[in-house]
Each structure stands twice: as C-alpha cells, then as structure tokens.
Design a protein around this nucleic acid. Structure first.
Lengths: 265, 265
DNA sequence: CAGTGGTCTAGACCACTAC
DNA sequence: TAGTGGTCTAGACCACTGT
C-alpha cells in the first residue's frame, strides 16, 4: 500500500533471516496494524460512494494488488468490516456492500416480535414531515448548532392493522435536503433503505435508551390506548461512517401482543 | 488432531504439487472446517472443567501440538471463542477462561444506567430462596419435566438505596443442588460468578423479551411505587454450554432515573 | 470451467509481559 | 531474555457459484 507509517518494510524475503536494509521507521509509538489501515481505506471507498449499497466490491486478489499487500491482510480487513455489518461475503460470488434492503438487516433496527415469536409485517402511516430549527437538545445529539435546520418526521407503524409504534424522527436538514412528505409517501421499503439510496447516508450502528413510561394524552390518542397506559419508550441515536450521529429517534411502543427482543451474547 | 472426518490429510508437502497418496475420505457432504472441530474440542475442555473460569489455558503452540494442527488453525478457533466471550486473550500473557467476575462482564447482563449515563453500583436484598416443583411453563423453558424440582430465588436490587429491580429467578434443582438462602446471603459479588464458581454452571448467552407493564399491587409494594405504575418487564432465558437453558428470570425495572441501554451494532 | 471466498499450513517478525 | 499473543506473507488446496 502507499501510505505505510508502520514497521512493515521488511520480510520481503521469507526464506532468509536477514532483516531489510533500512528499518527507516522505528517501532511507531502509535502502532497501527496494516489490516487496520486497509480497513480504513476500504471504509473511505464505501463512504465516498465508490462502491454503493448492494454492489459488489473488487475481489480479494484485486484489492491485495491495489493496496500492495497480501491477500491474507485484505482478508482480515474484510473480515472485520463484515463483522461490523458494512460488507457481506457470499462464497463463490464475491463481497458486497451491505444494504438495509436485506431481510436480516430489517430486524436489526426494529426488534419487535409477536408473542408467539413470529415476525409480523407492518405498514407505515406518515403523520407529518416538516422542516424546523433544532432545539438545544436535538442539536446537541446531532452535533449541530442550536437553531440549525432539521427535518422532523412523525409516523405510525401498524402491525396487523393495529397501531403499535409511534415514531418521532429528527434528521439534520443539511444532509437530508429535499426530503419531503411526497418522497416519503412514494417510497416503498424501509426508511433506512431510502436514506442510503436517496441521500447517500447509511446507518451503521445505533444506541437505544429504553424505559417504561405512562402514555401522555396525545400519544395515547394516536396509539388508541387509554391515557396513562404503559408504553415502551425507545430513544435512539443512529450513527453513520466515522461515528457521526445523523438521526435522533423517539419511539413509543405498545407491548401488548408484541415484545422487544434482545439478545445478550 | 485425532478424529478428523474432513479432507485434511493432504498438503503435508507445500512445496510439491503432488497430492497425498490416499485421499481416503471424499469431500464430506457434511463438511466441517478443522478449526471448528478444534473449537469444539476446546469447548469440551471448558465444559468439563479442565480449565476453570479465570485460569489460563495452554498456549497456542501447545494446543497446536496437542491437536496436531498448525498454530494458525488453533488461532482461528480461539479467535471465535474469544468473540463468543468464552475466552479472553491477553497479549504477552496468554489466553484465559472468561469469568463473570470481570468488570466488563457484569454489564453484559444488567444494562441499567443512570440518566446521566453513569453506571451505579447496586446491592442485592434476598427476599426468599426455596425449592419447589416446576410449573408447566417453567419446565418447558428449562427443558425439564413438569413437577421436576426447581429453585426459586426472589430478590430486590437497590441503586443508591432505591429499590429499582425486582427479580424472580428459576433454576433447575438438579444442577443447583445445595443452593440455600445462607449460601446466597454469604456470597459476595455477582450471582453468575457464584454459579460458575460453586455450581460449575457458566451462563454463556441469554435472550430477553422486553415489555412495558403496569405494576401489580404486590410488585408495586416491593418497589415502592403506586399500583399501575409503568415498569419495564424483562423475561430472560439464559443458556450454558451446548445451548442448554439453565435459568429463567423475570425482572421488573423501575425506569425513573435509570434506563436500559441497548446497542444495535 | 474459471473465478470467488474459505481453509490450512509454515515461517518470519513484531509488540507486550514477566522474570 | 524467553514466552505469549499479534501481524504479515506466500502458497496450496477446498467449497461454492456462475457460465
């Protein structure tokens, strides 16, 4: 590879024990393994859109040639990216950029199952989508300046015709310029699939704070439960490449007949 | 290694392209990579208690010699076991059997944080510990026969002096023979640490079903909240080696001032 | 059949820890 | 200095997928 700060200029002759002539760089105090650097380079290509969600990326041998490292090193980099859900390996076919359109990817971000353990389909009802200025709290969480433009989406998810989830979603206005009710209503499939396809912003990971709360009247109304009814409150912050926060989401879940599934492993 | 069903009897002479004399076994229809088999053997040693929680296991070179495979193959097996939280690698020192006494292991199974994001210490108040016969439902979840003996533990967790979590824990009576209130009261540290040290049963993973519920009078009383108060209901099933269920737990969490932290990654 | 990812090996060297 | 895990390489071969 081109930029190589670490101590890898040696071992070009595996059969001879002679060290390379000029070590040049001493054991760097900030040591970073080669495969981590490769991982960074691949991530850059993903972020820049060189390879788009769903597309195939170059084969391991090709990448090894491009970065001037062994296939094993590229392999380890891809291994980690696959473990991070950025790439998907398919034996015999190739390695692909992960997308929120896959079956399994859906579950990762909405872990609601029916009491019998089955995964039910749901439909989304858009309540509103409007642009406004960020409150201090939202600005802090999205790493924006207060009163920067944001988009607010409110929607209702119905499982088997029953209103089960109420979501309030805040997005940075700059990134999601051009997001309107019409485009939201027209789009089929998961919200995150639209975000990655239409706005080049892919959600990588998220953290959630979960609480039990009593339904306030306005929320209760929309979810068709009495005021004071126990609801699951889910506060999510989602991050994209570089661990930059790009979504704040507050959800209220009715958990009668459904539960939030979590695996500790 | 000794028992090798797969097609690995070749490539003993890497520099010559000649295949080994007797392929013996055709490409097995149920192909299992060598490192997976090694992983199984190491898991057996863990389960049998050959290496106990907290102890060091043999070095990679020793294990490679024992199983008659290359260090790289042992390495890949250990990599996965470390990813599964069964082993812990420490560079320069060795590889150790994971234990529930470590700081980071605690969090995995009780993800309750204060509103400011800090992790607060808690104390456990034992309410009761008695032996009884399994209900049909508990028996099913623990893979026992109805009316098999089980142990029921009820306890209260207090954060900063406030009653925050009420737990009901069912354990198979056979495995936890000799578990009494006295031993529970005497033991310092996490429950799971005691289980692995005193009963040789280590919790590997768990699944949780989370709901919001209204506090019933008896529960509300113990948690010092009004009846009907919204509580987080957490139903957990924990598994040990071989994915055998060994604990059913029902918890009620007061989530005012605290939240359940979950990471989607 | 060629091309892809997946496994396995052998060996050199590096970084970290303890004695 | 010796021993541990961690990185990197090169090469052979296997399993899977499409043409």
């Amino acid at each position: 590879m081109s930029a190589n700060p670490a101590s890898n200029a040696n071992s070009t002759a595996p059969e001879s024990g002679v060290p390379a002539s000029a070590p040049a760089v001493p054991p760097s105090p900030t040591f970073s393994p080669l495969y981590q650097q490769i991982k960074g380079l691949i991530t850059q290509s993903l972020e820049s859109g060189e390879w788009k969600p769903g597309e195939i990326i170059p084969s391991e041998v090709e990448l090894a040639a491009r970065y001037k490292v062994s296939q094993g090193t590229v392999r380890k980099a891809i291994d980690e990216l696959a473990a991070d859900n950025l790439l998907v390996r398919r034996q015999g076919k190739g390695t692909f950029v992960a997308t929120h359109n896959e079956e399994r990817a859906q579950f990762r971000f909405l872990r609601l199952l029916a009491d019998d353990g089955a995964e039910h389909p749901h439909v989304s009802k858009l309540l509103e989508c409007r642009r406004l200025r960020a409150s201090a709290e939202i600005a802090r969480q999205l790493d924006l300046k207060p009163s920067d433009p944001v988009v607010l989406i409110r929607r209702l998810l119905q499982f088997d015709g029953e209103s089960t989830v109420l979501d309030e979603i805040w997005l940075p206005g700059g990134v999601f310029r051009g997001l309107t009710s019409e485009r939201l209503a027209d789009y089929k499939g998961p919200l995150y699939a639209m975000f990655e396809a239409e706005f080049g912003t892919r959600m990588i990971r998220a953290t959630e704070k979960i609480r039990a709360v009593a339904a306030e009247p306005t929320v209760a109304d929309l979810l068709k439960v009495p005021a004071g009814f126990p609801l699951l409150s889910v506060e999510r912050v989602s991050y994209t490449y570089g661990d930059r926060p790009v979504e704040v989401r507050r959800g209220w879940y009715v958990t009668t007949g459904y539960y939030y599934q979590n695996d500790l492993s």
